[in-house]
Design a protein around this nucleic acid. Structure first.
Lengths: 134, 134
DNA sequence: CTTGACCCTGACATTAATGGCAGGGTGTAT
DNA sequence: ATACACCCTGCCATTAATGTCAGGGTCAAG
């Protein structure tokens, strides 16, 4: 199968398929005219790559275990676990950070609501709330 | 005060101070030799800018209301609320997305744990778990 | 007058995957 | 042969704030 067909079947753009190849994730044969020739298995392979990308893994990380997960159940590939654990730690840190920011925003938004509730021009409390959450 | 001193006082790098200026966030005077001359109020101003940046707002968004929050309590600046609300929506979407990925990772990690618990080479259940969370 | 600490502008690099173009070759059908 | 669909490589752009050069002024103290 040629690259256009694989692109249609998998939803990955042609550009992306070439990129995956440049990152060592997939290695199609070449026809005499230079065209890439993909085996039927490439379809599953590309879907697998895209799945891991959606998990937020990098092409480099995926390259580290792709050969394994393509040939046996993921749960038997020992290379995968540390990648998952490290990614999980990243994500939980990101979530924690975003949650702090969200809480801060919610506070600040509710201070607007408070202001508009009891009389616009009446700055009773807070002689400058002074970015207090900082 | 010159840029080096302001940098020391605020923790913003000289590079960043120049960048804030290029984005219209702060406009120091120039001495005859071309050096930037900052007023003492610049210190508070830079801290304010950095605070909003830490909330994840862009320099462009900050530029839209900075003149207001510098001159009165934030809660009276009507330009600020929509920016907060839009940023909050972004962040909640990001948190939701990250949470989905996290849950998926947690599942996959626990499938490794399950495997190692009851006999390594014994693939009893799951004839390929087949990236089921996808 | 030289040293050293400061300042200036302008430009390129960073990150990671993807989009998009230019310039060109291939292959098939009319 | 000409049109058209497809393929190739190589390159630049994207995002946003910041780091980091290079190449050059300014100015005070020695």
């Amino acid at each position: 199968m040629k690259i256009g067909e694989l692109s249609r079947k998998t939803g990955a753009s042609i550009r992306s398929l070439r990129y995956y190849e440049s990152q060592g994730l997939i290695s199609p044969l070449r026809e005499s005219n230079g065209y890439r020739e993909y085996s039927p298995l490439a379809e599953e392979q590309v879907r697998t790559i895209r799945f891991y990308l959606q998990l937020g893994l990098t092409t480099e990380q995926i390259a580290g275990f792709l050969h394994c997960v393509l040939s046996r159940p993921e749960a038997f590939c020992t290379e995968v676990l540390p990648v998952y654990e490290s990614k999980l730690a990243d994500i939980e840190a990101q979530i924690a950070q975003l949650t702090r920011i969200r809480d801060n925003l919610v506070d600040r938004i509710s201070s607007f609501r408070d202001e508009s509730e009891h009389g616009e021009g009446e700055s009773k409390r807070d002689e400058r709330s002074e970015r207090s959450g900082f």
